[in-house]
Design a protein around this nucleic acid. Sequence first.
DNA 1: TGCTGGCACTCGTCTGTCTGGAGTGCCAAG
DNA 2: CTTGGCACTCCAGACAGACGAGTGCCAGCA
Lengths: 345, 345
Amino acid sequence: MQEERRLAVLRAIVEDYVATEEPVGSKALVERHGLGVSPATVRNDMAALEEEGFITQPHTSAGRVPTDKGYRLFVDRLSTVKPMSVAEKRAIATILDGAVDLDDVVQRSVRLLAQLTRQVAVVQYPTLSRSTVRHVEVVALTPTRLLVVLILSTGRVEQRLVDLESELSDESLMDLRTRVGRAASGEIIADASTALRDAVPPSGSPLDPLVDARALAAVVDTLVEAMSDHRSDERLAVGGASNLARFGDSFDVDVRPLLEALEEHVILLKLLGEAAADGAVTVRIGHEGPYQELSSTSVVATGYGPRDEAFARLGIVGPTRMDYPGTMASVRAVARYVSRILDEG
Amino acid sequence: MQEERRLAVLRAIVEDYVATEEPVGSKALVERHGLGVSPATVRNDMAALEEEGFITQPHTSAGRVPTDKGYRLFVDRLSTVKPMSVAEKRAIATILDGAVDLDDVVQRSVRLLAQLTRQVAVVQYPTLSRSTVRHVEVVALTPTRLLVVLILSTGRVEQRLVDLESELSDESLMDLRTRVGRAASGEIIADASTALRDAVPPSGSPLDPLVDARALAAVVDTLVEAMSDHRSDERLAVGGASNLARFGDSFDVDVRPLLEALEEHVILLKLLGEAAADGAVTVRIGHEGPYQELSSTSVVATGYGPRDEAFARLGIVGPTRMDYPGTMASVRAVARYVSRILDEG
DNA sequence: TGCTGGCACTCGTCTGTCTGGAGTGCCAAG
DNA sequence: CTTGGCACTCCAGACAGACGAGTGCCAGCA
């Protein structure tokens, strides 16, 4: 009974603090929320909550502020994800449906997420690893220089130049093209790499005159490298940095580390990477994260991808003092719509 | 004679103010710089300079601060571009030489520029318009779906999918490929577009059975669109946003508009676009720019590109109170090295 | 004519003090 | 277990005064 009210008090504190950005006192609390008790009672509850580490006071005679632990409890047990309004849903759908290609989807998602949450949005480009090879094309630009184009089911296209040591005949090129195509097409990336390696005849084996073993090996090497290229895995889109200005001046939070982190994509990837691989929205609050400097920021992230294969992440980074239910709803909604679009495309 | 000293005073004021970020008074000025006159004399000069609008005082009994007009005079007549040290030059060369492709060159340039100047760096990706077509490839993914790959002399590769209304035979594909290749290869973008249009037989003309006129038209349309695609012209890399934190808290400058501008690439392009097309470094100071909100920021930019064809811009955005000689030197140096690399690649 | 030293004046910044008010903790009573 | 009352704490803002950096101006000097 009292326990229940205490949690209600904690919820009220979090909500008020997020809304007003100021420490919330017992009197204001009973006025704004309809808890049917007196300020004195609330004070007792507050003392208990502080004892347990859920809230704290900046100085002796100030109101209370939630701690990381308090937010954690709030997120886990006290809040329900706000459903998006129909209008919002439609807006999301409209904006994302207008995208013309994969890059555009990512760009739009980032903007949208930043606008919806008024936080800094981060969207990871879909990873290669789960996608399949749709097509491989080999083109001779000159007799000793090939262009290899790799087209993946996600819509990503990678191209590489390959310089050969000797000239390649048209017949050898055709042969090479069919061998590579047969080995890789339709396979998922991981399998395609091994299949390609198998397609290279072992050195010393009797050579079909049509096969230019060295050219084949060079092309296969290039393809395998392109497939395992982690640069593409690390690609990120970041948006809404101007939202930082809002929360920078409101309190003594130092924006610099966050601003620096936004340029260090490795750090952002690590932050996003902690997100659950299934469809759930993950929340990482303040000190829970791996970076000391970002202890006053939270990360709300989730995975996305076609057919529930979450093969990339997206999310937002913001102050620990944020509207978690609303933010989580936005992140979840955007992730769902993007997944749907990738599914259709 | 006095005129000369006045300019020396202005120069000293600018240098001191940039270094200390505080209004500079007559006494401190004669102490720090070896002008062989008394503070009183300097005061007279200051009064004159203020009369002419080159400096101003924040309040009655404070030191002087340069105005935009003062910075302008300083940049145009009083400063010499600091030469880079050998070590710096070598560092630039080393970092940029490590780049593996065009994107990487741009990425590295942005980082480098941000580090060197400790400002926000902006680098425009090379424009298509001046580059030539190195190769066009047409690949049939399915009988009704083509992949068109456009390779440009700058190293940029654009690819587009084309859906056909009817199936395309192998012979028609070969024919299409050679027609398109013959028309476009080696031409600069602008000419290639018209050459391609000419390659489409006028409707109603007697048809060679091999020519699939509609497919050809579709492919040509796609190529022309890709060539004139302004999305690629608008691509920008931005870096060093964390440097904003430095100058944000130092004075009452509002960082928000700048932070917003950094996400609006259109605005950045416009700012960069004002840069001179030749090799010179352009400086735009405070109110001289087109945006009211950015009146306390300056832009230092220049063009770059292979063989002095400046076909893209790069530069930095920072507070009007900045080290112009040093910044200009860095911008110029980076532009030169990037140009050289593009020249070699 | 131009430089210089001196002097009075302005005004922002810093420091210390004071006060009002919001908020707390505790206690005794219901 | 809740409530009203009360003493206490401490921040925020206002106010005043001292300080000092810097200025403008003037008279004297080269």
